[in-house]
């Protein structure tokens, strides 16, 4: 039944406008990051690592969390509009499977986003900056690792956007969460703030691995935040009366 739910969510995303955002925002962040890199060559050690710091500085601070929130808000907006709560709650699938279906599809989108960010990073690095060789595989690993922090934020925002019918408010919340995330990460409190997990996961604005030797606590924090949000989602879906408008 989870399979049906995933298929349904994928169908709903056909021709959805958020794909435009998916393509454009990382592009914007990539252009900004590359320009920044080229302008600060006097103070940066040239190379792939520092291009990554510049690419992710702006992206992880202002785009990553809001984009994740946008995906989850969009997935629920589809149900908030047009009385669709009545529809999805009367089809014979377990309620939590609907939530899990949305979670997995949003996570897939976040993964694709990160791969797109990485692809742009390589593309700009080779063609625009003209860096020699290929980026270290480690950086690809960081990009993908960011999606683990992303999972926690997705799970959380699926609950928030399920409750808040507004489309914009959760995205603004994520923007604030992301900016605060930089502070939490700097104060070494990143594990206690899900938005910071995204940043430290993708090693934003760092040339050396932020999580070197601390992968265990990072993974545990991602898991705990995700499971907490799952529990909240399960309770809300099973205990609350359905409101369709």
């Amino acid at each position: 039944m989870l399979r049906c739910c995933i298929a349904a969510e994928n169908r709903k995303l056909r021709r959805a406008l958020i794909w435009a955002v998916f393509l454009l925002l990382p592009l914007l962040a990539g252009v900004y990051g590359t320009v920044n890199y080229l302008q600060n060559l006097e103070i940066l050690t040239p190379g792939w690592y520092n291009l990554w710091t510049q690419h992710t500085l702006f992206y992880s601070l202002f785009f990553f969390a809001p984009m994740t929130a946008l995906y989850t808000a969009y997935l629920w907006r589809l149900e908030h509009l047009g009385h669709n709560w009545n529809l999805i709650m009367t089809v014979p699938v377990p309620r939590f499977d609907l939530y899990l279906g949305k979670f997995l599809v949003a996570w897939k989108m976040v993964l694709l986003t990160q791969l797109w960010v990485f692809a742009l990073f390589v593309l700009f690095g080779k063609l625009w900056v003209g860096l020699p060789g290929w980026p270290p595989a480690e950086i690809l690993f960081w990009a993908v690792r960011g999606t683990l922090g992303g999972a926690a934020v997705i799970a959380l925002h699926l609950v928030i956007s399920m409750l808040i019918r507004s489309f914009a408010a959760p995205i603004l919340l994520a923007l604030a969460g992301g900016v605060l995330g930089a502070y939490f990460a700097n104060e070494n409190l990143g594990l206690f703030w899900p938005y910071a997990l995204m940043m430290s996961g993708m090693n934003s604005n760092r040339a050396e691995d932020l999580l070197d030797g601390r992968m265990g606590p990072f993974l545990l924090a991602c898991l705990v935040w995700t499971l907490l949000a799952f529990a909240a989602g399960w309770l809300l879906l099973n205990r609350r009366d359905v409101r369709s408008e």
Partner: peptide, 30 residues
């Protein structure tokens, strides 16, 4: 629910999808 069909309050559906695609979603879930 597997043996029940319903239409409550107002018809549901996804505006950016076609009638066919909307039915595909429901058929898949059912």
């Amino acid at each position: 629910l597997r043996q029940t069909g319903s239409l409550i309050e107002s018809p549901s559906g996804y505006g950016h999808l076609t009638g066919q695609e909307n039915l595909e979603i429901v058929a898949g879930l059912k």
